[in-house]
Design a protein around this nucleic acid. Structure first.
Length: 810
RNA sequence: GCGAGAGUGGCGGAAUUGGCAGACGCGCUGGACUUAGGAUCCAGUGGGGUAACCCAUGAGGGUUCGAGUCCCUCCUUUCGCACCA
């Protein structure tokens, strides 16, 4: 056969059509092979399309899927769209085009670009969160949660983004700013739908242990959930009239109770008004007002503690001591009980506060450093603590809790930083919350048979800013009959956050077209996800919500597992030098995007795929190098040449040398795949080709075939073309991943390094099973070694078989 | 401040359980073939030294026959969390 040049533009589109036409990408329920579910985090279909940074996140799972496929699994590798969200809505506001139209257009563009990656998605299972047939089930899940009292409406201060004009969850606030638009978040009292994710806190935490996830992500979730063990203790506060009020506090250090010298309530604490003495009330309300008007950014920027005395006192239950009650914004209403006992001797924050306001600091735990300059927060022995004096603090902690429980003054308890999830958005482009408010019956869930509650078409998408979504203005949509009493009622007009649809989409891929169930019995067999690949930016929010949804669906019997993602892999980002002059995350706004279309045109999809892997370790960020792809492209050209040059003229008797290279390649590629060292796999192929082509001999057919099958997951068009050119009529993806023979990857002779006093002086080639004596004998004949042995005494010989001989001389 | 990573040639990065540091690629240098080379091929490429050798994995200690790898101290850097009692 002639040696035609490697021209990717000629072959790549052809094979993509071929795979499509032969439905090679489709995951069939009735396929008898074992299943493997490899999932990419589905994208928001933005208008700007994909750049080479995005490519990286799709290439890796595609290679992995193709590898799993060749290993004999039926692979589910689907793709879909997380298509609700503000960019489409903002477009709608600006251009007056319905978000669904813009979204559909973006999806088409994304699909085209993903197609050019050569990724083997099963498009027959595509899901779209904005499709009523999909969000019917998002709403269905909400209804189930509502029935289980996991969804509730609460009037409470929440984060309000003045730019997006909507409430947002704690999770959406980054450094006091809106995660989406960067505007400073303010607080606003609003009636909100909330999801009781806190009820799952303990399970969400406990299950982390067994997951094959990056430790970093587990640590982030652990911190976010923020479990801490301690005690709730009831102090008795005395109001201005002298009337007693129980005042509960949470502490992780009940062993320091005797060191409490004052108390602090959050400014929002409901007892503040009650307790404040009349001569203090002006100052107190001024402080409360000031704190409430501050944004989170201002609050965080504060370097010094502030606070005011209420004029009231409380009785410490352990020693009946009367201590002053202060208010300060360093105590948060949302955590614990919104009030603390302050133990300045053993808490840094209390220490700082006490120093500033001249409050007593009483040491009750011994420590080496003492408390003269800073709080001592470690363990020690309890002192000045009544009957508990002399106990080690850890033990005293338990004893005091027991004592409190006996007296009915407190109890051991656990607190979490995790808060309930603010699930309402006052925006148009989201799933309508399927609730109807009836004056008589209160909030009533929409009947399941009436789902989905479709998003009505409207004229004005503009957020109102009043705290109501634009839906509230559509009267004939809002006004409905109560499903229970048929009386006049109004629909809920808030919509769900974008996280809603993405919290369960991975389940829907398993039975995307099922009409009567979220998930069919057939579909269940694909689950859970075996490998989930995506960016670490979703380490907390998306992954926590998805775990919560799945756990809930497990509890109501929809799925048979609590954890949706057995294994998680976080892909690093692509960085590139942008406007700022330093390497930053590639993004349109930073003006440092590299367009893959040009690269595909010049080098082909396969070269780009392989370079995306070669650019660096997949879990780390990698800086884009514009010339890097040339090396990979050169390699593919040389490989193409090597295969086609010998096509049909294979040798029947490959040299041992060739066999060694074949088996070594396969071993390296397989092992490196298993450990996800994708960048070094590309090196393996290059090394193989360097060796094989420098042998100046025709390869045997099997070696070439092994090479092609092994490279197929990475350069699929390249491999498929050469495969079929060399006389095969079936797709290379119907091959089986080959196995290597250790007999060829272990060697008869080995090169042993010879060191003298730890310094390399030479190498000797010996039989692999040679003993120390033989190696030493051979080594001492080597002139470079012998020179250093002249006139010295060998004190010690260290021989590591097949690796190294170290001679200690003196 | 707390937590988790990361520091290796001009650059991206390789290095089984501690065992020949710098694989592979980019870039660069020289050469070949060419009207031409931003194509292709060959050779070279951590620093110093004519050489023998010496020095080199952020810095400094330690363990070891032997350390990029293990331990301690410090520096730089990235990311996450950040008044959570």
């Amino acid at each position: 056969m002639s040696d035609q040049g490697y021209n990717p533009a000629d072959i790549e589109p052809k094979w993509r059509e071929y795979w499509k036409a032969n439905s090679l990408h489709e995951a069939r329920d009735d396929d008898p092979r074992p299943k493997y579910y490899c999932l990419d985090m589905f994208p928001y279909p933005s208008g700007s399309g994909l750049h080479v940074g995005h490519w990286r996140s799709y290439v890796l799972p595609d290679c992995w899927s193709r590898y799993k496929w060749l290993q004999g699994y039926k692979v589910l590798h689907p793709m879909g769209w997380d298509a609700f969200g503000s960019p489409a809505e903002n477009d709608a506001i600006q251009k007056g085009i319905h978000p669904s139209i813009g979204t559909a257009r973006n999806i088409e563009n994304f699909k085209r670009q993903l197609h050019e990656i050569g990724a083997m998605y099963d498009w027959s299972r595509e899901v779209n969160t904005t499709d009523p047939e999909y969000y019917k089930w998002t709403q269905w899940i909400f209804v189930q949660m509502f029935k289980k009292d996991l969804a509730y409406k609460a009037h409470m201060p929440i984060n309000w983004c003045p730019s997006c004009k909507t409430g947002i969850s704690n999770e959406d606030v980054v450094n006091g700013r809106c995660e989406r638009c960067g505007a400073e978040v303010t607080r606003r009292e609003m009636n909100q739908w909330m999801l009781r994710i806190t009820r799952y806190a303990e399970r969400l935490l406990r299950n982390l242990d067994a997951l094959e996830w990056p430790e970093k992500v587990k640590a982030m979730q652990t911190n976010w959930i923020g479990r801490s063990e301690g005690a709730e203790v009831t102090f008795t506060a005395l109001g201005s009239s002298g009337a007693p009020h129980p005042l509960k506090i949470f502490t992780t250090r009940p062993d320091t109770l005797f060191g409490a010298t004052y108390m602090v309530m959050a400014p929002e604490h409901p007892l503040v008004r009650e307790l404040t003495a009349s001569d203090r009330s002006a100052e107190v309300s001024a402080y409360v007002e000031r704190v409430q008007s501050e944004s989170d950014v201002e609050r965080a920027a504060k370097t010094e503690k502030t606070g005011v005395f209420t004029g009231a006192y409380a009785i410490n239950p352990v020693n009946a001591e009367k201590i002053p009650i202060w208010i300060s914004d360093y105590v948060l209403m949302a955590y614990g009980t919104g009030a603390i006992m302050a133990v300045p001797a053993h808490d840094e924050r209390d220490y700082e506060f006490a120093k500033k306001f001249g409050l007593e600091i009483r040491e009750v735990i011994t420590s080496e450093a003492g408390i003269a300059t800073e709080a001592s927060v470690g363990e020690g022995t309890m002192i000045h603590s009544g009957e508990f004096t002399g106990r080690p603090s850890a033990e005293g902690r338990k004893a005091i809790v027991q004592w409190l429980e006996q007296k009915g003054l407190g109890r051991g308890t656990v607190n979490y930083k995790l808060r309930d999830w603010v699930f309402s958005r006052q925006r148009y482009w989201g799933e309508p919350i399927p609730i109807i408010h009836c004056e008589k019956c209160g909030p009533v869930a929409v009947d399941e048979k009436d789902l989905p509650v479709r998003l009505p078409d409207i004229e004005r998408y503009q957020p109102t800013g009043t705290g109501e979504s634009p839906l509230a203005a559509i009267h004939d949509w809002v006004n409905v009959a109560c499903p229970k009493c048929k009386g006049p009622a109004k629909r809920e007009t808030d919509t769900m956050p974008q996280w809603a649809g993405s919290s369960w989409y991975f389940l829907r891929y398993a039975s995307p077209h099922a009409k009567d169930a979220l998930l069919t019995e057939q579909g269940k067999k694909w689950l859970p996800v075996d490998m989930y690949v995506g960016g670490v930016e979703h380490a907390i929010l998306h992954l926590l919500y998805a775990r919560f949804f799945t756990m809930f669906l497990y509890d109501i019997g929809v799925v048979g597992f609590e954890e949706p993602f057995k294994r998680l892999f976080n892909q690093g980002m692509i960085t590139y030098v942008g406007k700022s002059g330093k390497a930053e995350k590639m993004s349109k706004s930073k003006g440092n995007v590299v367009n893959p279309d040009d690269l595909v045109r010049n080098f082909g999809c396969d070269s780009l795929r392989m370079y995306e892997l070669f650019v660096g370790p997949p879990e780390l960020d990698a800086e884009w190098n514009e010339h890097g792809i040339e090396g990979v492209h050169r390699f593919l050209k040389r490989a193409w040449h090597w295969v086609s040059m010998h096509n049909g003229q294979w040798t029947a008797t490959p040299s041992r040398q060739m066999l060694v290279q074949r088996h070594l390649l396969l071993k390296n590629v397989t092992e490196r795949l298993e450990s996800f060292r994708m960048n070094t796999i590309v090196s393996s192929f290059m090394e193989f080709l360097n060796e094989a082509s420098s042998m100046n001999q025709a390869p045997d057919k099997e070696t070439v075939e092994v090479f092609l099958v092994a490279i197929a997951p990475f350069a699929p068009h390249f491999a498929e073309e050469l495969w079929q050119q060399s006389g095969h009529s079936k797709s290379i993806f119907q091959q089986k991943w080959p196995v290597w023979d250790e007999a060829y990857t272990t060697f008869d002779t080995v090169t042993v390094a010879v060191q003298i006093n730890g310094k390399l002086r030479g190498t000797v080639v010996v039989n692999a099973d040679a003993g120390e004596d033989l190696v030493f004998e051979t080594a001492s004949k080597d002139p470079a070694v012998a020179r250093h042995l002249d006139g010295v005494q060998i004190r010690k010989k260290v021989y590591v078989k097949g690796r190294i001989l170290n001679l200690v001389v003196g």
